[in-house]
Nucleic acid binder design. Structure first.
Lengths: 190, 190
DNA sequence: AAGATAAGTGAATAAATATTCATTTTTAAT
DNA sequence: ATTAAAAATGAATATTTATTCACTTATCTT
């Protein structure tokens, strides 16, 4: 009895992500994906019931990955700003190294593919970010504005920074990274 | 001899925008658009040679509209921060009132629809924004970092703010607007 | 008012794409 | 080694969607 090949799901995901960057979410077909993944079209249906399901699964996987990486090595015992910067850097690095995921996620935001359940699941994963910012407000280091707004600035500026870096091929020197962090911190700090 | 109805292009654009918000760029069909615009599918082809051309035209129109509104009433004679806030408010208001356009533009970013020419044309329209930020640096009010980075923060935070406001149905009180502006200004100011 | 010209129509066609399925290949278990 | 069960295949099918076109309707010009 042959078993499903776990690496294959990874190949499929990688192929799909690569294609979304070059052709957009609207431009990818099951044929494209299978070809890029080096498998037959029919095989896609061994792993996913439909295109919708494939995309929802990829969306969920990206989201989980991203959140998991954000808090790697975060130590709440350290001073707030140190921990905050640690997470900020984690996010930045993750997005730069996984640019395709960021693009894919953005495209999914307004697509009919993602089901309400998938969205719901994704938004529950936001809790750690909320806590991080709440703590900053409690310690009176961050502006006493609602957490949503703080996150807005955090992710908004990060998103654009990543895009800018990626497309203009800017090299992110340590100095530039620090400058950027300072801008973000200045926006949030009280 | 019957003439083309100029309002019809507007109807088509409005219909397409509405659909992109609800179904994503990947989800819209020519049939959907024509139905939403209240015309026959064939009529779309009187005004646009193809779906691609329709989308490129819409993209260009949105971009022009948006830029045109940004600098309405901007008076370079006023103190820098006053003018800057004026433009910032213009952008915010425009995006909130034309949320669909913002969504559409974002979706287009990584789509195969938009041709290099259309992109090129759009990016040329960025000049006024660049000038605005250059001036701020010249007057030593803004951080002496590269203009691209300043714009990154400006538009990044704005984008997310607009999304957050729209989706969470937050009412933007004058206070909240000012808080948000302050965050942005704090990020940019030297 | 008549004629001419182009817009408007929507069913028909063409093209693209998702999905299925009969068949082959692989591999785990015996 | 044989068998059985499931994966893998890709051509065939079903579905969706862009585009065309023969025809109708509107309106500008004279």
């Amino acid at each position: 009895m042959k078993r499903k090949d776990d690496r294959k799901v990874g190949q499929i995901f990688q192929a799909a992500l690569k294609l979304v960057v070059s052709k957009g979410l609207s431009g990818i077909t099951m044929g494209d994906i299978s070809k890029a993944a080096g498998i037959a079209t029919g095989t896609l249906y061994v792993y996913f019931k439909s295109k919708d399901e494939l995309i929802n699964a990829l969306f969920a996987a990206c989201r989980e990955n991203s959140v998991a990486h954000s808090f790697k090595g975060y130590d709440p015992a350290q001073p707030y700003k140190v921990g905050f910067k640690h997470v900020w850097l984690n996010i930045l690095r993750y997005r730069l190294h996984n640019f395709e995921e960021a693009v894919f996620m953005e495209q999914c935001y307004h697509s009919p593919f993602i089901t309400p359940e998938t969205r719901e699941k994704a938004s529950r994963l936001a809790a750690p970010y909320n806590e991080l910012l709440e703590r900053g407000k409690k310690e009176q280091l961050l502006k006493p504005v609602d957490t949503g707004l703080l996150i807005t600035f955090l992710v908004g500026s990060m998103n654009e920074l990543v895009k800018q870096t990626h497309y203009h091929g800017t090299t992110l020197t340590r100095t530039r990274i620090n400058t950027t962090f300072d801008m973000c911190w200045d926006a949030l700090k009280s």
